[in-house]
Computed example of a mutant assay.
Amino acid sequence: MKIVVLSDTHGDAEIISTVFNQEQDADVFFHCGDSELSYNDDHFNDMIRVKGNCDFDDNFENDIIVNLDDRKVFITHGHLYDIKTTLALLNDQAQEADADFVFFGHSHLMGAEVINNRLFLNPGSLTLPRDGNAKSYATVEWEDDENDLTVYFKTPDKKIISKHLFSILKK
């Protein structure tokens, strides 16, 4: 399985299409909000998407839970969970959702960590990265019957910034 996670593209519809076209082998695409596009914009190409604090189309959901085979994904932008200060509120919500993966944006800082057997992933920003980070998105890849997964942070031209290995036990 291969998942692509984007966030905080802030009006740059073409960068969404660029990543989509580069990652055609992906099974699922997620956008964690602040696209500043309408919900039905053609650039989303069937991406699962949520509302960020800079998205104003009421068709966006704040949070979505998606089942992918035997894994559950909780996706949100993060601003409603105070993620710039702590992941505690987001962790509580992820626990309530019984999520395996938690995808969020908002801070424009890429990062991945495992908390309570859950992968928390922020892909960074493809347009406005902060703290000297490169423009980025993320992919999460794993074999169907495996607990081990790999997270790649990539630049808009698909160069790998970093690679991280994690183990998430199936529930």
Rank of each mutant, 00 (worst) to 15 (best):
R130D: 01
L68M: 08
T155M: 15
F44V: 00
K170V: 10
M47P: 00
N45Y: 10
K163W: 14
R49Q: 13
A134N: 08
D12S: 11
H77K: 07
R71V: 02
G78V: 05
L169H: 06
E36L: 11
I64N: 01
N53E: 05
K171E: 04
A138F: 14
D131K: 10
Q93L: 05
S38H: 06
D42V: 07
H164I: 08
F29K: 04
A99S: 08
T86R: 11
V114G: 06
D55A: 12
D148T: 13
I16C: 03
Q24V: 10
R71S: 05
K2F: 10
L6N: 00
F166L: 12
R130N: 02
D63M: 10
A134K: 15
D82L: 08
T127W: 15
T85N: 14
E14N: 05
N91P: 01
L109H: 08
G124V: 04
N45A: 09
T150F: 14
K163M: 15
A94F: 15
S125W: 15
L37R: 03
D144C: 10
F166S: 02
T9P: 07
T86F: 12
A26G: 04
D12C: 11
L128Y: 08
K170E: 09
V73S: 08
L37V: 01
Q24D: 00
V151A: 10
H79I: 08
I115N: 03
K51C: 09
K159P: 00
D34H: 01
D55C: 06
N122E: 06
I115L: 15
K158L: 05
D55V: 03
D41L: 04
A88E: 04
F29C: 11
V4S: 05
E113K: 09
G78Q: 04
G111W: 15
N67C: 03
D145V: 00
Q93D: 06
N147R: 14
R118G: 05
L80M: 12
G132E: 08
T155W: 15
G11C: 06
E113H: 12
L121T: 11
S136F: 12
G11E: 01
E113L: 15
K171W: 03
P123A: 12
F103S: 04
A94W: 14
L80F: 08
L128Q: 14
L89M: 12
N117M: 07
N147P: 01
T9K: 01
E146G: 01
L37K: 04
D148S: 13
D148C: 07
A97C: 09
F56M: 04
D82M: 07
K2N: 02
F30Y: 12
D131F: 13
N53D: 08
T139K: 08
K84R: 09
H106V: 07
I75W: 00
G11T: 02
K154Y: 10
N147Y: 07
D12M: 11
K154S: 02
A112C: 12
D63F: 11
I3T: 09
E61C: 04
E143R: 02
V114L: 14
L6H: 02
N21F: 14
F20V: 11
E146F: 15
I75A: 13
D157I: 09
R118V: 04
D27P: 00
V19G: 00
P129W: 13
P129V: 15
D131G: 06
L126W: 10
L126M: 15
L121Y: 13
S136T: 15
Y39R: 02
F60G: 05
L87K: 06
V50C: 04
L149H: 07
F30T: 11
S167M: 07
